[in-house]
Simulated assay, not measured.
Amino acid sequence: MVSTQIVLANRPKGMPVLTDFRFEDIELPVLSDGEVLVEGVYYSVDPYMRGRMNAAKSYAPPFEVDKPIIGGVVAKVLESKSLDFVAGDLVTGRLNWRKKDVVQEKLLKKIDASIAPPSYYLGILGMPGMTAYVGFIHIGKPKAGETVVVSGAAGAVGVIVGQLAKIKGCRVIGIAGSEEKIRLLKEEFGFDEAINYKTCPDLKKAIADLCPNGVDIYFDNVGGEISDAVINNINFHARIPLCGQIALYNSSVPPMGPRLQPMLLSRSVLMQGFIIFNYESLFPEAIKEMSQWIKAGKLKFTETVIQGFEHLPIALLGLFSGENTGKMLVKA
């Protein structure tokens, strides 16, 4: 059986371009015991994937040149030689970017579409949801009445963090990059205030005006000048869950910013970077609580869905220009 895959053609320098990806047709092997044939339904694109295009050592091994990109996928089982799966099952796993693939059973997890739409298992009930929950609840340690600022607030993680803050009784301010995103954060997701960083003439002052009592928790998805502005308004004993640095991912030479360590030291601030795969023991707790909040209508989610497997590279590049609201997905 022939399938189509997307491989890393070159290691990008700075912002990736479409020629850094290549489409190939391959012949799939015959199924062996313990394997299943799957067809992709939804494919996830995530900012961390940019880091894996580099050869640098990190928490996850780099993608190999001339080998398939790997990411979160929801797939349908077409044929099975596994005792755990049957044809028709919906599954999720970290799989190759292929239209169809032969996969070992240990790489797959069955999903229940009666709890939530299948795509949610790549979003609010997948890695972004786990990231938001662990980072905010276990590292942010929110207390009712505190002020929370979220950068990248209209992204897959940010929209969840803001709602978790409201559930925990906090005041929450989001930072995003368009007036439509600002509207959605306030009207759809319950943020108290939101700032369009692209049109704001003085972000540091705008944060100070909206946070007269300072910032107790800063959930950092972005880094760069936005984080500089927020941290200048940080409170004593504040917490900073360090989730992402998308403003810097495509910099061949990271820009020099303010030296923030003296401020963190003098105000006794905790800044903690975290990689969600190190917290898998907390996933059952997160899924249980968030499923209850979803059913109760306290937790909403939004997706940007692009149609067509062939548009996966375009969707990934779109993350870095802010073309998504919520989770960016490709539907095959």
Rank of each mutant, 00 (worst) to 15 (best):
C243T: 03
P254R: 04
A238F: 07
N232L: 11
I231E: 10
M256I: 13
P241S: 05
N233L: 02
N235D: 11
P258K: 15
H237K: 15
R239D: 04
A247Y: 05
Q245W: 09
S251M: 12
G244A: 13
Y249T: 06
F236D: 15
N250W: 06
I246P: 07
A229P: 04
F236Q: 15
F236G: 02
Y249S: 08
L248R: 11
N233D: 04
N235A: 10
V230Y: 00
R239Y: 06
S252L: 13
S251K: 13
G257V: 09
Q245F: 10
M256A: 13
I240L: 01
N232W: 09
L242S: 08
N250P: 00
P255M: 02
H237M: 14
I231P: 01
A238C: 04
Q245H: 08
P258A: 15
I240F: 01
C243R: 09
A247V: 05
Q245N: 11
S251F: 12
M256V: 13
A238Y: 02
G244Y: 03
Q245T: 11
N235K: 15
I234S: 08
V253R: 11
N232S: 12
N235L: 09
A238T: 05
N250G: 05
V230K: 03
P255V: 08
P241L: 02
P254V: 13
N250Q: 08
A229C: 09
N233K: 01
I240R: 08
I240N: 06
A238G: 13
V253E: 13
M256L: 12
H237G: 08
Q245R: 11
N232Q: 14
G244M: 05
